[in-house]
């Protein structure tokens, strides 16, 4: 009986010591200053990647780009019936923004770029594409792997001269 009482007493003492030990360790861990530079070699990394979008700036600027006496949007609605003219003009402007071909794919594959534009009038749709856009080439390059992180698109609804809405959508798939 005496040993039992002694055991219970020891248990209480050891429990208290363990509790104090835990508190001391917690105190040391949470009050010590952590030198940020010492965190560099740690295996686990939380990464905050940049947001892969441009906030619609490219589409806005593209449509506002002046061409002689009009901007690109006005040029599009004025030449609605001449799709070739629209395609040539948009391709010409997009070459500065998203230019990519087979040679660049060999030299700088990480800078891959592909774009597509849909211009939806009330009665018809014009589809344009460029950069590294051909599906067979894109498949061969593994571009689909980048889709989830580097793909973004924006669209705008703007009125034409007859107050019908024209929807313009510009999509990109971009590398780093």
């Amino acid at each position: 009986m005496k040993k039992g009482v002694l055991g219970e007493g020891m248990m209480n003492v050891i429990s208290l010591l363990v509790l104090v030990g835990i508190l001391v360790v917690f105190f040391i861990i949470f009050t010590k200053n952590i030198d940020y530079s010492n965190l560099k070699n740690v295996e686990e990394i939380i990464s905050s990647k940049k947001i892969n979008s441009d906030g619609g700036i490219t589409l806005k600027n593209l449509l506002n780009t002046p061409l002689e006496n009009v901007n690109l949007y006005e040029f599009i609605i004025l030449n609605k019936n001449d799709q070739e003219k629209i395609k040539n003009k948009v391709n010409e402007l997009m070459k500065d923004i998203c230019n990519f071909d087979k040679i660049l794919f060999i030299l700088e594959p990480e800078k891959i770029c592909s774009w597509n534009m849909k211009i939806k009038f009330s009665d018809e749709t014009i589809n344009l594409e460029g950069g590294f856009a051909k599906s067979s080439e894109a498949k061969a390059s593994g571009i689909s792997q980048q889709d989830s992180t580097n793909k973004f698109s924006y669209n705008l609804n703007l009125p034409d001269y007859n107050n019908n809405l024209v929807n313009i959508e510009l999509g990109f798939i971009k590398g780093t």
Binding site: I34, L39, K40, V42, E44, I45, S48
Partner: peptide
């Protein structure tokens, strides 16, 4: 005790890469 220490150590030893976001 070991589990608690391991969990705390793991969370404290994470390196947060924010360079790309800053840029």
């Amino acid at each position: 005790f070991g589990s608690v220490l391991f969990t705390i150590d793991q969370s404290l030893s994470k390196d947060i890469e924010i360079e790309e976001s800053i840029a």
